[in-house]
Each structure stands twice: as structure tokens, then as C-alpha cells.
Design a protein around this nucleic acid. Sequence first.
DNA 1: AGGTGCAGTGCAACTCGTTGCATAGGTATG
DNA 2: CATACCTATGCAACGAGTTGCACTGCACCT
Lengths: 181, 181
Amino acid sequence: MALEHAILVSLTERAGSGYELARRFDRSIGFFWPATHQQIYRVLRRMDDAGWITHTDVAQDGRPDKKVYEVSEDGRSELARWLAEPVDPAILRDGLAVKLRGASLGDTAAVLREVERHRAEHATRLETYRGIQRRDFPKPDKLNGRELHQYLVLRGGVRAEESFLGWCDEVIQAMRSESTS
Amino acid sequence: MALEHAILVSLTERAGSGYELARRFDRSIGFFWPATHQQIYRVLRRMDDAGWITHTDVAQDGRPDKKVYEVSEDGRSELARWLAEPVDPAILRDGLAVKLRGASLGDTAAVLREVERHRAEHATRLETYRGIQRRDFPKPDKLNGRELHQYLVLRGGVRAEESFLGWCDEVIQAMRSESTS
DNA sequence: AGGTGCAGTGCAACTCGTTGCATAGGTATG
DNA sequence: CATACCTATGCAACGAGTTGCACTGCACCT
């Protein structure tokens, strides 16, 4: 029930097509609320039917036509309504933790290699976030309003990846020194 | 496709009924792989049909009968197979981040109160994890094998909650000083 | 000439996950 | 004494999310 609202937030920041939204989800909002293009198209249609958004067909040459969506008055008030109501705490789904917990029932060395692989992945993501932070928010003390909120969300991403990375390192160290003892 | 494997790990640690598994998911594995009792019952049936687990009907008095499941040879080899193959990196779904990003489109003060609520929730979880850590793993340096892995998973939970908590504090501080400036 | 990739929308079929309800006796709480 | 919660399993219906495919046309690489 919240993909709708993530889309409303993103479309309020800037109008866009389903395709463009899917790209944005890959690069920013989607780090906290993942969605595939299929999911987005389906929900956009539902929101259009509900009157939360409207679309304009835009012909392009060399490229397929697109439907550019924007948020309607109803959409804005739905968003405001949702913002005032409680949401569930963050949900974490981590296959690596499940694997680690069962590591001794299989090839422990393979699980260790998997942890190393995840470490690299999280390090890459962390660098991505830090790059955005340097480029878009060089002076965080001066921020307010929408920009401040965007910055704070990004800080959440940085903190989450730092935390994953630190965990991977702790696990790697513990598993290595165990196997040599 | 990994709830099966989370269940296999849990059932290997100890045989149990669907109900018992649901309790365990509430208290440990489920922090990294959430599941409702319905989901668990359905998957247990599928796993039973596939021959990964077997069940024994156990009559109890004063209480309903239960089906105690245990992992079969096929289940053990399926688990070993899965442990050697890559899994996707952790998925985080955080409605609070979506809200924060859209905060300026609604009642900012209400969003701030929501952040404070989440902060309290994460603080409670952190205390739960730390309590388990103190009780079950007082001397982490001495651990190895299954116990070490369980400890490391718990460490991941501690780190994740510390990270959420720190984030909430950063957000609260920034939003408060913004509104008074 | 052929393959890959991007931009753009969408259908069909599937699995995953949630919610509400039903049943039933036991035990605790007010 | 009524209400509510715990143990225990499960159906039915729904909503969320994934995967695979289809079609168009341009651009780029080999």
C-alpha cells in the first residue's frame, strides 16, 4: 500500500513517464522502496483510474510515444493524508544472514566467499551514495525544506551501507580466524 | 524462493511444528526474513510434498494436535546446494524514508513525530538484541561453528538497529534545528 | 549484416505475502 | 461469569511483486 505513495512523492518532485519513474527508482527512491517497471506501470494505471494522477500523451520522434504523469489535487491530498498516518518500521530481508546462520550445514568456505562478494557490493553502493552526497549536498549545514529531507534520506542510505559493510568485515574476520585456529 | 531455506535452517537447529516455527520467526530468524504463520504453513506443506521435510502427528491433551516437522536427507542436500549458490543482497523497505522525502508536501511536524516513534521502536529492538547477546553469548571470543554463526547474525541485527537509531537521531536533530531557525 | 542496448508501453502467468475468518479447548484476567 | 489470549491448523480471497515475453525504432559497435 505504499508504492503509490512513493510514486506520488517522486512525481511531485517532477512529472514523468512510467519508464522515467522506473529509472528513478533504480537510482534513488528504490533504495528504500524497490519496484520493477512492471509494478510501476500497473500502479500508475490504478492511480490514474483513482484520479490521483493525470497523464498527457507525448509524441516523440525516433522514440515511442510516452505518457507523462503528474499529480492531481486528489493525489496531493491523498499524499498529505498518508504523511500524517503511521507507517510500519523498516523491513529488512537478508538472505545472507539466513545463509550465515546455516553455514555449518554446508560449505562454510563458500559462505565466506559469499560474504566477501556482498561486502564488495555494499562498498560499491556506499561509494555511489557518497558520490551523490559530495555532488548534490556539499554544504549540508545550509539545507532546509525539501533539500534537507532529500539529504537526510541519502544519509540513511550511507549509514545503512556503512553498517552492512562493517558487519561483513566483522563476519569475514571472525570466520577467517576461526578456520585457522 | 528463500523462505524454504530459512525454514530448513531453523528446522535443522530443532524440529518443530508450524506454530513453533512462526514463534521462532517472530523472535530470531524473522528479523532477517519475516514471515507470517500462514506463509509458513503453506510453504511447509509444499516442502513436505517435495520431500524436503517429514512430519509426525503428535497428540496433546488440553491442546490441539500438532505436526512436528523434521528435515529429511533430501532437505539437507537441498540446503547444502542452496548454501553454495549466490543470494541477492539484502533488501530494505523503509516507508519512513519515503515519508521523509515527501515531508514538505504535508505536515512536517507529524513526520517528525513519526521519526521519533520509529526511534523508540528501534531502541526497543536494539535492547532485545543486546539482551540476547548478553545472555547467550557472554564470551564471543570463545565461539566457533554453529554458535559463532548465530552470534554473527545477531551482531548484524545489533549493527542494523544501531544504524537506524543513529539515523533517526540525525534526522530529529536536523529537523528540530531547522524549524527553530 | 548482425548483435546489443536504450527508450517506451504493456500483457499473461506466476509466485509471494497478507488479511480475515473458522474451529476448539484451556488458561488467565477483570 | 464474560472476555480475552494462547496453542494449533488451515481455507479463501485478495493484493503485492516477479519473470518472461512482445513490439517498435534508433544508435552504436564489430
